[in-house]
Design a protein around this nucleic acid. Structure first.
Lengths: 133, 133
DNA sequence: CAGCATCCAGCTTGATACTG
DNA sequence: CAGTATCAAGCTGGATGCTG
């Protein structure tokens, strides 16, 4: 091959997050963003209503959840099902693609959660040596 | 068990990203943050020097890269190897844990990159229906 | 219940300049 | 090369109040 190996994996893909202008970078940010990842993670269990979701994702504000949900819906990762009842009832659930994304995300989340003691230990060492210098 | 099932998976883990106060949430953010994910992804190929990394991660500023690397080093995901030569040479590489994290991240990145046309299509539909309303 | 509009504090980010 | 320091600006995100 002649290409100067700019990426290790999947060099033939048209989309490349490492490039500034690539739209995939935006989607990756929606997905991995503070509330995006938690929202997708929460919805992995099954569909949830707006306020249920809000309670699951501890600390999210109404505004941020709404905004996050819109971005995810626009990217085709979440499906919004509104019932014109009174009081209104709206359910959110993952699309098949959203489900795949959430799986990867949960893999990552589980790994991080499972290794937090290592992380915490590393932090202590880092802070100790830095503070001593 | 008496706990009212707050998480679907791994209910016995001491760390839970869904909880506001959990330190794992911070680490997850370092890892999934805009520059964190790209930095880990870039380092997955092998160790890189500061400016090499800067060129790989298109669009990152010196300051943000520096800051990102510090956070990842502190969390024990990246190892910094400085040689006291002149001019200075500093290599960054993933730790074993960093490597595991990067693997999950790359799975996610590849999925997103590979499905961007679906995402783009979904966006068009979303924008079209929203604009029409 | 489900959400949008607005206001505003403050954290994040990017330039720029400087150091070892 | 490999960063740190500083400053201005802009985006993020929370609180509040209102609608259907």
């Amino acid at each position: 091959m002649d290409s100067t190996q700019e990426r290790p994996s999947a060099p033939e893909l048209p989309f490349n997050v490492f490039a500034k202008a690539c739209p995939s970078r935006g989607t990756l940010e929606h997905v991995t963003g503070r509330w995006g990842s938690l929202t997708l993670g929460a919805l992995y269990e099954g569909s949830l209503r707006f306020n249920e979701l809000r309670r699951r994702v501890d600390g999210v504000s109404e505004k941020m959840l709404s905004q996050t949900l819109h971005a995810l819906e626009r990217d085709g990762l979440v499906h919004r099902e509104a019932q014109p009842t009174n009081p209104p009832r709206v359910d959110y659930e993952l699309t098949p693609l959203g489900r795949q994304v959430a799986e990867r995300l949960l893999d990552l989340i589980r790994l991080v959660e499972g290794r937090m003691d290592d992380v915490l230990t590393a932090r202590e060492r880092y802070d100790a040596t830095r503070g001593a210098l």
